[in-house]
Design a binder for these strands. Structure first.
Lengths: 258, 258
DNA sequence: GCTGGGAGAGGCTTA
DNA sequence: TAAGCCTTTCCCAGC
């Protein structure tokens, strides 16, 4: 057990130095802002970061039970309690953590830099696909990528061998209702813009049954994208398509990051 | 600095006991699963929880840079390194944290209970609304809520004073494209099911410009919802509707297309 | 620098 | 188990 007075001083020092501070103790939590929540007394880990973000973790799940960002942090001693307060405006938010006992407190000096994450995301897949759209369908030629429309951002626009406009929506995960309606929105935009009919292809590793039904009703097409993620390699290339079969629709994606 | 051998033992003990374990040290991270990502060496906090979830935190932002859930955890000593591995299937995911130095390690006994009380959720709003639908419009009577359709779950179905079916989609935050298309899907379901025309109302604190445009094109209505989040304990009520304002009174009955 | 728009992913709930 | 959907987000582009 650590004295609350001492805890207060340590938190203040840590916050000032932009350290990462961990406090483990018995506390209750009140949050008011975009939602309202009350957390009864319990033992939890409070994580204070160098950018003044605070998160309260219980002993399960990845996401914190409560959190706040970009707030002004202050400490306040009461009758056998220590209140850790964070408040911000726009939008107005208030987080109050009331400690009745602190089991442990640690302060770690740590860089504030944003960790560089080298990842294979939808963007990489998108780029890899743009290298050779003919893998989706022979004769398919790219026209534009990530074109901004008023009703969303379209992944890929292409033209098929017969000169038809083709709108392609790419999903890394199983496609759902939202994916289908997104594609439909882009299609409408393209059709209205150009005054012509367009084809729409949803490209994803899978699609939910009911979503597929909706897709069919809307006259859109689905193309299964069976890709494989591989560990990073060493040449400067980010993503490379190894192959795709129209029947089995298999794309092997190799991610290589320098 | 803590010896890696000692770290390994402590992590294994902590995981077994379902403690919350924190490890602060220099590490690199490789993740393979929903995406593929590599995090270069850096000082970070690794949080291991009693449900076997692992998250890696940098000194900024609430969200962890990497995480995994429901995985099998193991430790492995190498040449001057300690590898903390987590792997799971369905879907296949692998997370490997390679420590080259450990500054601190803590293990805290902590309950696994989940005790957050959140109020002001959409569910609360829904309940508050169902108490008196006439707030939306005089003479509106509830028929059903959370009705399951083939293409989604409809928040509220009601009947207006003229006997028209009214489909209501409720959002606790600014409505967007998805909100509009959701409402549209439910409308179609209702209309196909009953073979009649229905009205559709989107109920939200606000609506995005483009989403509103789409709403208008589809002949749907928007109703601004002004609500207040109430603190806990007050007669069990979690949300209170302050007011409802019809932005545009659009009666679409005469727009029926045969 | 702030703000609005859009897409994303964890986690809950019900069938 | 799967499907549907909600959310205290986060990024990015435009002002």
């Amino acid at each position: 057990m650590i004295e609350l007075v001492e805890t207060k001083a340590a938190i203040e020092r840590g916050v000032l130095a932009k350290h990462m501070v961990t406090v483990v103790g018995r506390c209750s939590v009140d949050y008011f802002g975009r939602a309202t929540s009350t957390l009864p007394s319990g033992k939890r880990l409070v994580l204070i970061k160098g950018d003044n973000s605070i998160s309260i973790h219980q002993n399960r799940l990845v996401r914190p039970t409560n959190y706040i960002m970009g707030a002004r942090i202050s400490c306040e001693l009461g009758e056998g309690t220590l209140k850790l307060k964070a408040a911000k405006t726009k939008p107005a938010e208030r987080l109050t953590i009331t400690f009745t006992g602190v089991h442990d407190l640690r302060s770690y000096e740590m860089e504030l830099t944003d960790d560089l994450r080298l990842s294979g995301s939808e963007r990489d897949l998108n780029e890899a696909l743009m290298q050779d759209l003919s893998m989706i369908e022979p004769g398919l030629k790219p026209i534009n990528q990530q074109q901004h429309f008023r009703k969303g951002i379209c992944d890929i626009i292409a033209q098929d061998k017969d000169g038809n406009m083709v709108v392609i929506e790419l999903k890394r995960r199983q496609a759902d209702f939202d994916s289908v309606t997104q594609l439909q929105r882009y299609m409408r935009e393209v059709e209205n813009l150009k005054g012509i009919k367009a084809r729409g292809i949803l490209l994803a590793p899978g699609i939910r049954k009911n979503a597929k039904e909706l897709l069919g009703q809307l006259g859109l097409e689905f193309c299964r994208l069976d890709f494989e993620l591989t560990p990073h390699g060493k040449d400067g290339q980010k993503a490379r398509i190894k192959g795709l079969e129209r029947k089995q629709q298999t794309i092997m994606q190799h991610l290589k990051v320098g």
